[in-house]
Nucleic acid binder design. Structure first.
Lengths: 258, 258
DNA sequence: ATAGGCTATGACGTAGGGTAAGAGTCAAAT
DNA sequence: ATTTGACTCTTACCCTACGTCATAGCCTAT
């Protein structure tokens, strides 16, 4: 004396749409126990139970594919699945937190008429000589206009971003130093140089400007060979690295200008 | 002497894919300033700036359609858009927090040796007809919400919790039965009914919901008078008890609703 | 002239269904 | 017996924001 539910009945019971049941049948996630000769889907209690389980995992934002795997494989490591999912959720939460920070800053700035981060803040924490050097170079060669930042740049630059940018820059710098004996034109080196270029533009606050500033960037490369303070690593001068870097940058600029 | 960027150049500068630029062109979000005779897209500085703005809002998870509206309408209330978006993000964050709570509880219980509790287990020890009846009633009358919450509840409930709940329910049930000949409105009876109500809400998995579900609860009382299987005690039907209980519940609900 | 790199359009795929269209099925009321 | 109305079936296009081919045209260097 089995109770049979039609699609609509089951859908109503579980609070999902008929289309959903059709879909679940189609992808093999929940198949009706019987089909009438007319092709009607009939479900029984066990399908109802399975549907409940499905809805539970769905509430936890599991993709349907994973739900199927979990339910169909009794030996499935549910705990690991849940933990992985937890990590994903945490990451999403982090991201949302960042977005909220940015959005609140933006609202604030828009209301204030848009004041932004200062250069002092930008260079905060970096060796003073380097900061001074870069800023002076920028100002002398391209004037105030070039140093002006776009609204975008300022709005998206939270202190956390800045911190991240700084460490990313340091990382890449080390990477470049490690390449010192390689071919300056090799793809790996050029890749790192491209990143360096983008980071430098960010430090200059000109990342969103149309002018790519190739000349300026090339000058920076030459500056490294003339002023060895910039290529000090672990308190130790490194003229070979400066030479290497200058070549790599020159190559990069030439390739880009084509 | 305008600088022109090809798709690939622009894509590299901005860190997006060529496909993305094709798409933005297609949907009118970012059109190239020029097309060569061969159909090649050429972008200028102003497109680069616009693209930066687009990417800014995209980072904030705005849908492309909204970004277009924001950028194309200079009178657009950006602050309100941002605030609305902020609210949406907060809601998403809340939801994720809830999911995390549930997922952590679930992991905890699974680690405790709790396999997922089944409905059989939930109703284990209780007369089968009752189990069936309650479950069916819940599904038919309140559908998805009740069922889903119930599932959640199940997963976050240890066997000890469940056992305790069951015995407490049985105790209270006996207590109520013993009152059968008293005044349904008397304080003692009403006290027991209140407990019964709370327990029922726990079985339904709706104990933490703001909605008190008075109607549903009253229905349950009436069901007792119509289906005497629910009020069987020691294998013996008890219509008088059912009547009594129905009245007591009705009184309780009326008092609470005031 | 040919190779190799860039570009174009078009089409299909993603997750989880919504929203039909067109046609068949079933039970009850006429 | 037939019509109505409620269901049901399959097929198939729509949504986001692109990724990933496939095929073909364009451009430049050797």
């Amino acid at each position: 004396m089995k109770k049979h539910y039609s699609v609509k009945q089951l859908a109503r019971l579980a609070g999902v749409s008929v289309r959903t049941l059709h879909l679940y049948d189609e992808i093999g996630l929940l198949k009706p126990s019987v089909r009438t000769e007319a092709g009607y889907r009939l479900y029984e209690e066990k399908e109802l139970l399975r549907l409940q389980q499905i809805l539970f995992y769905k509430e936890l934002d599991f993709p349907l594919k994973d739900i199927g795997d979990i339910l169909d494989d009794p030996g499935f490591d549910r705990i690991r699945a849940l933990e992985g999912h937890r990590a994903a959720l945490l990451a999403r939460k982090d991201r949302i937190d960042n977005l909220l920070t940015t959005i609140e800053k933006t609202i604030f700035h828009l209301k204030k008429g848009g004041v932004m981060l200062s250069h002092e803040e930008l260079y905060e924490g970096l060796p003073k000589e380097k900061a001074e050097g870069w800023r002076k170079e920028a100002w002398e060669r391209w004037g105030k206009d070039a140093v002006e930042k776009s609204e975008m740049q300022l709005l998206t630059m939270t202190r956390e971003d800045l911190k991240g940018l700084k460490t990313a820059f340091a990382d890449n710098w080390k990477k470049l130093a490690a390449f010192s004996n390689s071919d300056p034109a090799s793809p790996e080196v050029q890749e790192a140089v491209r990143l360096h270029y983008q980071q430098i533009r960010q430090f200059w606050g000109t990342a969103s400007e149309p002018d790519p500033q190739w000349k300026a960037y090339k000058c920076l490369g030459e500056m490294y060979t003339q002023d060895h303070r910039y290529t000090v690593i672990d308190g130790q001068s490194n003229p070979a690295f400066a030479e290497f870097l200058c070549k790599a940058i020159a190559h990069f600029v030439e390739e880009e200008q084509k």
